[in-house]
Amino acid sequence: MLPAQFDYVAASSVEEAIAAKAEGGDETRFLAGGQSLLPMMKLRFATPSKLVDINRIAGLDAIEHHNGHLRVGALVRHADIAASDAVSGAVASAAPWISDPLVRNLGTLCGSVAHCDPEGDWNSVLLATGADVIAQGPSGSRSIAIGDFVQDFFTNSLNDDEMVTAVHIPVPSGRSGGSYQKLERKVGDYATVGVAAHLELAADGTISAAGVAMTSVAPINRKATEAEALLVGNAPTAELFAEAGAAAAAAADPRDDVRGSARWKRQVVAAFTGRALAAAAEQAQA
């Protein structure tokens, strides 16, 4: 399985990359880690006429704390996140479970976010933590809330001449915690079910903010808003988390497939939501 022909440009700056992309339009794609794009091109599911390689652009590979958020640059690889001391909560918890160690050495968080694969893990983590996507175009940068960024499966809200330069993940000043629970059939498999949870605690120990989002159980990564609403304002207890799990399961819309029955997947969503919340609470209380 070999890709069809295409033109190739290695950009040396974001501006150059955006210009090259704008010129080629729809048929042109950015090449980041290539761990989603190249497999699709080899199978000829994707046949772009031009690739704009962003790997040689300097300054996009940093993970840094900045104004109350964690900034993850466009060339930060999954492996960088898994190895970083700067990350915590659901982000730290998810990183080791993205694909396999070799794919993690090339694939990027921003590429994954841009790709909008409903089986991708990162968008659930970003939905749960309330992250923003930073998109740069010819006339400057804008910040897009992750919920607005993810439009549909394999569809984001970038303009043809925009590139994701970073993702901003809020870092709460108070007590917080997060976790990502993933059921995969083997290493390298996409999630059968994934649940990201993020909790913030008020001074009295009640939940002041909550994020729950799910992978692979809806046409796109889905936020479990009812579950979140149930949590806020209440004390973190096993009963509450079980209720939130049931709410998340109700919000899921899984399908019967070779990975398992829809009925069972809902059950796993409920169980994993409970487990993710318990782990998040434990972290926040520590």
């Binding site: 290695a10 290539g34 497999p39 080899k42 199978l43 070799l102 794919v103 050495n105 090339l106």
Partner: peptide, 28 residues
């Protein structure tokens, strides 16, 4: 064909990657 098996692994600047899922031009 799907970046799954890893028998194509090489080290690029010391890091193991799957060489079936990287373009030769990227290794320039």
């Amino acid at each position: 064909d799907t970046t799954s098996c890893g028998v194509c692994t090489v080290l690029v600047d010391g890091t193991p990657v799957k060489s079936c899922t990287m373009l030769a031009v990227q290794a320039d």
